[in-house]
Design a protein around this nucleic acid. Structure first.
Length: 638
RNA sequence: GCCACAGUAGCUCAGGGGUAGAGCACCCGAUUCGUAAUCGGGCGGUCGUGAGUUCAAUUCUCACCUGUGGCUCCA
């Protein structure tokens, strides 16, 4: 007999091989109706998978987040069922649930078209209405080979099973798949789904293997959730930084310059410069020293750092300079280390914090480039902290303050992940455990919640990853802090301790925005191009209603200009409506409309971006005070 | 790099074996307006680049370049 512990503390006895369905039914028939799957000791099983061991037992219903993955995985089978009906020649690969939906990979001679997708979707609806049960069977290797004789990809997978592994198949109507499960009871459970797009994908993610055709889709229990998700995708498209940047004239690329190389237009440059100025003041306040290092560097440096060995495929080629090889730097760390080594260092000097807005160049494969998000030349807001082991907690604490302050300024909520030792790693497990504990302690001490990303560290040390959440709920890579056990060794970094002997410092790498390019690209989408006042390329546009008040409008412009406000006068001979419309489309935070009434009272009719006709009339003096306050506090609105 | 798709005026796009069209933008003129497009006129493209097929290519074919969606990789 197996003993199952229920969440309320009660226990149930069930014979070995009992079906979860029967156990759930014994708890209550209503529960069985709502049950999607069960969880046994953390493993999700469907209702028809025989129980082989006892443990913590929990029923999963639509309310549990785990149920969504079960639904989506079943959705993948339903998709494959439909595809097989319409394209019997399609060989099946894998079809897992993923974060926002599911996909299925097929090997086909003719790639799928958007019209195919529509047909598959209607065919899926048929499969759903046919209400095929998902039938689980456990079979022998020989039997499995027979069943998948026509599916070479499945046969390959079968070859990897060890003798003691259970091979299971799932059948829904005409379709059979090699699959571990779990699945929903039958195909009718899938009600709210949408096929999204197709894409090529390597068989088993290996670029040396053949390309399969992948169909991406999403599914939810509730119609509202599906609609919300599709709306978020739409909203993401509407905010696409490449489109907005074109409309707002922020940056461009050009084939003559080269792909993945960003040309910052004046308006984009203003945004970037505001961020840099802000960050510069911030880090100087937090005890950093600014440095500059060259863009091209002798290869010797990268031999010492190991980049030439480990990062070569991402480095641009060498250029010959009087017989010596130079390369554009892919990272700033070695340069900062050399500055550290330009003097003998004492424990009294530490911590040393070098910061640089360092341009780096990395050879990224052409297919990976994407707007400002993935480029070949970018500027990192990079810093390296050299300190003693004892100083690490205080440095982490300082960094958490710094990140928190900065992310609040941009209006990003965030989460933190602590990435731990990967399989292939430098240094002993003890050193790692110690370092991971130091990081965790620093977070815990200030009550900062975080999750673990097990095995997600770099080979040279653990790291903290900040994940930003943007205005429509998407996650972005934010600041990272990495401990480095490697470079101090390779360069033989030293400082003299109080005991008058040499010691090896600890090195911390950290970026806040990461790369100016990627961060600004993200900001464009976060704000949908409507930048807060302090970042807006054009902050105020003054619009005289008619020529007779041009002089007054000019005086408003002058007064704003002397306070450093980025202001323009739009006195073109266009209608007021036309000029207002253009200002709105350029997402200018404030339009100061002035007519005869305003000129008489030294005031403006202020149109706030996005507020439509709800204008406020205020004196120029009051407007100046308002602007100055919003700039000083870097207000997020308007 | 790989798979699929795309490239026509500054932008968004229509067209199609006989060397091109719209709207917006831009320029000129009229208009002087109270909160999201005033009217009229004009300028503007060797149809991504190169080669091939053809009497004839922007249109068909191939290669390359650039971009898009993914894969792989990543700030």
């Amino acid at each position: 007999m197996l003993t199952l512990r229920l969440p309320d503390g009660a226990t149930r006895e069930a014979p070995e091989g009992a079906l979860p369905r029967d156990v759930v039914a014994s708890i209550g028939p209503r529960l069985l109706r709502d049950a999607i799957a069960v969880e046994l000791d953390g493993e999700v099983l469907d209702l028809d998978t025989p129980l082989r061991k006892g443990g913590a037992f929990r029923v999963i219903t639509e309310k549990d987040p785990e149920s969504l993955a079960v639904l989506r995985h079943s959705g993948a089978h339903i998709l494959a069922t439909a595809v097989r009906r319409l394209r019997p020649d399609a060989k099946i690969g894998f079809g897992p649930a993923i974060e926002d939906g599911f996909y299925y990979d097929f090997e086909v001679k003719e790639p799928f078209t958007p019209e195919d997708l529509e047909k598959f979707e209607s065919e899926m609806k048929k499969v759903i209405s046919e209400k095929f049960p998902f039938v689980r069977e456990e079979v022998s290797q020989a039997e499995a080979r027979k069943r998948f004789a026509d599916d070479p990809l499945k046969l390959e997978r079968l070859g990897e099973f060890s003798d003691d592994e259970i091979i299971s198949t799932y059948t829904d109507g005409p379709f059979i798949d090699l699959c571990r499960g779990p699945h929903v009871p039958d195909t009718s459970y899938l009600k709210n789904f949408k096929l999204l797009h197709t894409a090529g994908a390597y068989w088993r993610g290996d670029e040396h293997r053949q390309m399969l055709q992948r169909i991406y889709a999403t599914a939810f229990w509730k119609k509202e959730d599906l609609e919300a998700h599709l709306h978020q995708l739409e909203e993401g498209k509407r905010r696409d930084h490449r489109v907005l940047a074109q409309q707002l004239d922020l940056y461009s690329t050009d084939a003559r310059v080269g792909p993945g190389l960003i040309l910052w237009h004046p308006k984009g440059a203003i945004i970037r410069n505001e961020i840099e100025e802000y960050e510069k003041a911030l880090i100087l306040r937090h005890g950093y020293d600014l440095v500059f290092t060259p863009h091209i560097v002798s290869e010797k440096l990268f031999q010492i750092s190991g980049h030439l060995e480990n990062f070569k495929e991402n480095m641009f080629g060498a250029m010959d300079v009087e017989g010596a090889s130079y390369r554009p730097k892919p990272m700033n760390c070695p340069g900062h280390i050399v500055i550290y080594q330009s003097h003998q260092r004492s424990y009294r000097d530490l911590p040393i914090r070098y910061a640089e807005f360092g341009a780096v160049y990395r050879y990224e494969r052409s297919g990976t480039l994407h707007g400002m998000m993935r480029v070949r030349g970018f500027t990192q807001d990079d810093a390296h902290i050299f300190c003693t082991l004892e100083q690490v907690p205080a440095e982490i604490d300082r960094l958490l303050d710094l990140c928190d302050e900065m992310l609040k300024t941009f209006g990003y909520p965030y989460t933190i992940e602590l990435a731990t030792r990967p399989d292939k790693a430098l240094g002993t497990p003890e050193v790692w455990q110690n370092a991971e504990k130091t990081l965790a302690d620093a977070l815990n001490k200030r009550g900062q919640s975080f999750t673990y990303d097990e095995g997600g560290g770099t080979f040279y040390g653990p790291k903290l990853d900040f994940k930003l959440i943007d205005a429509i709920g998407r996650k972005w890579q934010g600041p990272t802090v990495q401990l480095d056990f490697n470079l101090p060794e390779r360069f033989g970094l030293e400082y003299t301790g109080p005991d008058n002997t040499p010691h090896r410092p600890i090195m911390l790498h950290r970026v806040l925005v990461g790369s100016m390019e990627r961060f600004v690209g993200g900001l464009i989408e976060h704000f949908a191009g409507a930048f807060p006042l302090w970042l807006a390329p054009e902050q105020v546009r003054v619009i005289p209603i008619a020529d007779e008040v041009k002089g007054f409008a000019q005086s408003v412009v002058e007064r704003l200009k002397t306070r450093g406000v980025r202001v323009h006068l739009d006195d073109r001979s266009e209608t007021l409506n036309y000029r207002i419309r253009e200002g709105e489309m350029m997402k200018i935070p404030y339009m100061a409309v002035v007519g005869k009434r305003e000129a008489e009272s030294d005031s403006i009719a202020l149109r706030v971006r996005g507020a439509g006709k709800k204008q406020e009339v205020m004196t120029v003096t009051d407007f100046l005070a308002r602007i100055e306050d919003e700039l000083a506090t870097r207000a997020l609105k308007p």
